[in-house]
């Protein structure tokens, strides 16, 4: 899952980036409103975490422009402004959630997870395909009741594939949702991770769940 953080207070921005990355998300951080708008429009983020008082372009205006361009990406507003009028204005302009600073990082993570679930129309924090199950809160995968040990990157790949279960996911989509600008580019890295993941999930199981479609990408689910 890939998140854009638009926050101009440097200590907050770096901590958010670090914390979200360590929680398994791909994160891009910017401190400027105009750049934030450009990034949000150029990339497919699963979530935008948006501060309101920004240099360049304030958060409310950024959100307004994003929505008027028809962008439906989920937006979580993060601000020190706590009056009801501020909240109402933000939510009316199309924000999906609102968190007042200072906040508990755990609460931010919970809200991020909830918004990501909404992006993929999942109501439950547990995702299940056949006998494969992942717990998005504890970031664990189980195959036939057995824990599958996964690296953070592998888990991120699996979670995205699970959210899109049954659909062909192109390599560029996978790349966009699982890697951020901090990651080194190079497309075969992705294939290496997917093959690692496939080995851990499918080896020793008769029913294979991760499949490749040549020239198009991957899908998770029953074989065609």
């Amino acid at each position: 899952m890939r998140i854009l953080v638009v926050e101009d207070y440097v200590p907050m921005a770096t901590s958010l980036g670090k914390g979200l990355r360590e929680s398994g998300y791909a994160v891009d951080v910017t401190g400027d409103g105009k750049e934030g708008l450009w990034l949000a429009q150029e990339n497919r983020y699963d979530l935008v975490v948006l501060d309101l008082m920004l240099p360049g372009l304030n958060g409310i205006e950024l959100l307004r422009r994003l929505r008027s361009a028809g962008d439906t990406v989920h937006v979580l507003i993060l601000t020190a402004k706590d009056t009801v009028a501020d909240r109402v204005k933000g939510l009316d302009l199309g924000a999906d959630d609102y968190l007042v600073k200072p906040f508990a990082f755990d609460e931010l993570l919970a809200r991020v997870r909830a918004l990501v679930r909404r992006t993929y129309r999942q109501a439950d924090a547990l995702l299940r395909v056949r006998d494969l199950e992942i717990d998005t809160v504890r970031r664990r995968a189980l195959r036939a009741g057995q824990t599958v040990p996964l690296s953070a990157r592998e888990y991120a790949l699996l979670e995205y594939l699970m959210h899109r279960a049954g659909q062909v996911v192109s390599r560029s989509e996978l790349w966009e949702h699982v890697y951020d600008f901090a990651a080194e580019p190079g497309s075969n890295v992705l294939d290496v991770y997917v093959s690692h993941l496939r080995r851990k999930i499918d080896d020793g199981h008769e029913h294979k769940l991760i499949h490749t479609r040549r020239g198009q990408g991957y899908w998770l689910g029953d074989a065609e």
């Binding site: 207070y9 200590p11 907050m12 901590s15 958010l16 670090k18 914390g19 360590e22 929680s23 020190a80 007042v100 600073k101 200072p102 906040f103 508990a104 990082f105 755990d106």
Partner: peptide
């Protein structure tokens, strides 16, 4: 709130 929030997030992320 801005610096206070920054401080809290910094500490909580460090304690992850």
């Amino acid at each position: 709130r801005t610096p206070l929030a920054g401080l809290r997030t910094l500490l909580e992320v460090t304690l992850l």
